[in-house]
Design a binder for these strands. Structure first.
Ligand SMILES: Nc1ncnc2c1ncn2[C@H]1C[C@H](O)[C@@H](COP(=O)(O)OP(=O)(O)OP(=O)(O)O)O1
Ligand SMILES: Nc1ncnc2c1ncn2[C@H]1C[C@H](O)[C@@H](COP(=O)(O)OP(=O)(O)OP(=O)(O)O)O1
Ligand SMILES: [Mg+2]
Ligand SMILES: [Mg+2]
Lengths: 467, 467
DNA sequence: TACCAAAGC
DNA sequence: TACTGCTTTGGTA
DNA sequence: TGCCACAAC
DNA sequence: TACTGTTGTGGCA
């Protein structure tokens, strides 16, 4: 940090954290690293074996599938997951992205090791009452079970792709993806080859050389989204969860119409299709947690209903891999794997050790997952509830500070425009830089409790000086 | 980093590691942290219990004794170690130093947890042949045992203090320490109160209010050191390990004079005392590792001889706490404790798990420790072997960059003088800054394989620009 | 409050 | 050759 | 090579 | 109120 930077930081930036130099030292050494020294008392220690030939670990290979992989259980394709991951790995070899994936994999492995260590210690201190404690909590959670409502999750099939297909019906049945350079989704035909959301086009082409890619058309999706939601609303209160999915509370509809949930949802899906030309899939159960998982089961253009009984709920979720649950991603899955859990049912099997680990894991949430419990509150968020607006752009790596500054300013302008249009204002401005090794640093500043930021000038004034 | 820094860095400094910005993002948020949000699917999860009342951990309390504590088994004082640590803890409460100790303690605990986790995993994969493998290596190491030499470690008693006492005999029997503000050593009388090396004076006074502190007089110690070593040389080749301790190979002396090692060492110690007025303690065994530990046993002014048999060597070291071994400090001790080892004998008991952990621990070195093996090579380092020179100074924390720069330059001058006097030159210059929270950052630079640094100008030119 | 990791679409 | 852009949550200091 | 943690006196 | 100064080793990226 230069002198001028330092002084600015001192007068204003809180991120210095009152850490001041209190000593300095110089060392002048023959070399940065001294080789082959006789290590005093270690003289008799033989040299450690050198590292083995590098072979990608199983967990790293799983990472290759991208974030969406493992969640949506794709099947019926030309290749197995292993073959797909192998191709992706070969195609990624030597890239900085892969290096970053390796780093993350190592970090996660380290977390797993640490957690297992804590478990080992806790097991020694176990008092023998863990099962009783866990069971007591299970009983307490069971008390809260509410089977009275019909909660549906509706999720559009290959949403962006379907929207484009509406515009251009000749796309039907062809392999294509949406997004320039990076796929946001892939048509079901493309998925058979292994193409997925969040996959770069150049890799998708390794899997499916004839894949076509379409540019993003955001207006298309918001329009379709509104069309879908306005139909859903006829069946009960809804809570949109993203552009292409929403929860609906269809309890009253079923009661009023005297139809089963299955029938009600079938009607709703049919109406969506007839009105918009889009197919949606749905999951139905007494709560959002289960419905979310259920919606994936008969995708695309299907539905799955879980009977509103405690038994059906538990039976449904018991054998599901933990990764299927909303909130359990790659890392949490590996952590739980490390403790010996693979499926939701294992939560019960290992409730003792989970109880011991309750300070390090969301214990009660896991138990309620096992019981098939979940929230059934379906409330539409108000527009004013939105917490933040952001804008981001990736560019060719640059080490030219001026060029960087220009980029930063351009993004700020774009955000400012967005914010102005929505009449939003905030108190904390955050600037984030992604480096070409995919590491990110963020710098944030809150000028004051009552100081609201809206304009481009404000953003740059407060944000850009953070570096 | 400012524009000017960045450009300089690009042209010269390797520490940028080719990490260039590749994306920027802005986020404008309502607040830095949003409170009491309803967490989608986690809604039914109750809030975690808040942290317990803060009470210092056992390991943190052990830290209070300072680095020397636990190594040198002080005993016969007025207070127990626990009482001493309690007083030191109270005296340190609220200080940044203590915060740093807490941080380090936490880091170490995390390491322990991680290691235990790895162990747990390895235990699952255990193939059952670990004992055989370990025993094979033990046998192989046993082959290397060499009992033929008489290796002595001589270590002066309360060295700096003793030097001062020679100058001022009235200090004899009184409680005093050496060092302004920070004690480098304490007289044996002061040690009875708990005063130790590396203890700040203000804490020493809590333990021993009448302690006197003397300023450092480096010439005194180097002179005394030379005097001692020149006597040791009469008894065989020596290898100084610090100002106040040296290894001596007395094999030939014993053979030529026809005396036992005990008698030879007694003579040597007597001669040192008669000539210099300083008492030294000594350990004798077939290797440096054992002699080092042995020298502490009958301190002060005593000696301990280990018979040159495999049995005696093993019996001697078996029940010693691991911490007594050279190379096992606070962290390594805790790591080994975490694996269930406390004494050197436990290395054998747990050789199977140590074998499993051989990639994460110095396995063979630990085994040879258990066997009581060690190097017996006693070679005096040549003057030209020295690898680095350094200088460091602690000052009142400052956030004034100019003041800091001045300090940095002053230290560089002091180092340059030292280096000039010794006609040393090096290729890597390192600048280190200690902050008031005791965190350190270091920046190093090697201008080139054939570029040698000696002058103040070189140091500042290459070093100061590192920040 | 600030920073980062994880998770979702 | 090449790996997005958006929002939210939770842990930690 | 550069950076940090650990260890020792 | 307050917690050094010097040298060396070893792991990791
Ligand atoms: N990683 C991503 N980056 C950007 N946009 C994404 C990403 N994942 C999904 N989207 C967009 C495009 C998707 O069509 C839309 C809905 O996502 P999602 O429901 O998960 O998949 P999908 O609707 O395309 O297929 P399906 O639901 O049939 O599995 O959100
Ligand atoms: N942490 C330290 N910082 C600075 N100087 C130290 C430190 N520890 C020791 N010294 C100096 C002062 C000591 O007198 C000298 C020799 O150290 P050492 O042999 O460990 O203790 P000692 O000789 O003072 O007592 P004894 O050997 O009797 O236990 O080195
Ligand atoms: Mg969808
Ligand atoms: Mg000594």
């Amino acid at each position: 940090m230069s002198a001028s930077d330092a002084s600015r930081a001192r007068t204003r930036s809180p991120r210095v954290k009152s850490r001041s130099p209190s000593a300095t030292a110089w060392t002048l050494g023959r070399a940065a690293k001294t080789t082959a020294t006789t290590a005093h008392h270690h003289e008799s220690v033989p040299i450690r074996e050198s590292k083995r030939f590098e072979v990608p670990s199983e967990t790293l290979m799983k990472r290759m599938g991208g974030p969406s992989d493992g969640k949506a259980g794709l099947s019926g394709g030309f290749r197995t997951e292993e073959e797909i991951n192998q191709i992706l790995y070969e195609g990624s070899k030597g890239s900085k992205f892969l290096e970053d994936q390796k780093r993350r994999d190592k970090d996660t492995q380290a977390k797993v090791d640490k957690l297992r260590g804590i478990l080992a210690k806790k097991l020694l201190e176990a008092r023998g009452n863990e099962e009783a404690c866990a069971d007591a909590i299970l009983a307490q959670l069971e008390e809260t079970r509410d089977l009275s409502r019909v909660i549906t999750l509706v999720d559009a099939d290959a949403f962006y792709a379907a929207c484009h297909q509406l515009e251009d019906p000749s796309l039907a049945g062809t392999a294509f993806g949406v997004g320039g350079g990076m796929l946001t989704t892939a048509s079901y035909e493309a998925r058979r080859y292994g193409c997925r959301s969040a996959m770069p086009l150049f890799l998708a082409k390794l899997l499916c050389p004839h894949i076509k890619s379409l540019s993003l058309k955001p207006e298309l999706y918001t329009r379709a989204s509104k069309a879908i939601f306005s139909i859903l609303e006829k069946y009960g209160p809804i809570a949109p969860a993203s552009l292409d999915e929403a929860y609906a509370d269809m309890t009253d509809y079923c009661a009023n119409e005297g139809v089963t949930p299955a029938e009600a949802v079938a009607r709703m899906r049919a109406e969506v299709y007839e009105t918009t030309g889009l197919t949606v899939s749905a999951g139905v159960s007494p709560n959002k947690t289960l419905s979310k998982i259920a919606a994936d089961i008969n995708k695309p253009n299907g539905q799955f209903v879980i009977d509103p009984t405690a038994e059906a709920c538990q039976a449904f979720i018991r054998d599901k891999p933990l990764r299927k649950c909303y909130g359990i991603g790659r890392v949490t899955e590996m952590l739980l794997n490390g403790l010996g859990l693979k499926t939701v049912g294992d939560i019960y099997k290992h409730r003792c050790r989970l109880y011991l680990m309750r300070d390090h894991l969301p214990f009660r949430w896991l138990l309620s997952l096992y019981l098939g419990l979940g929230s059934n509150s379906v409330k539409r968020a108000k527009r004013g509830d939105r917490k933040s607006y952001g804008a981001e752009k990736t560019f060719h790596p640059t080490s030219d500070r001026t060029e960087l500054d220009n980029m930063i300013k351009r993004i700020a302008k774009s955000l400012a425009k967005d914010v102005a249009r929505s009449e939003f204002s905030g108190r904390t401005i955050t600037l984030s830089i992604k480096h070409d090794n995919f590491q990110r640093v963020t710098r944030a500043h809150t000028p004051g409790r009552n100081i609201w930021i809206h304009s481009y000038q404000d953003m740059v004034k407060y944000g850009l000086e953070l570096l």
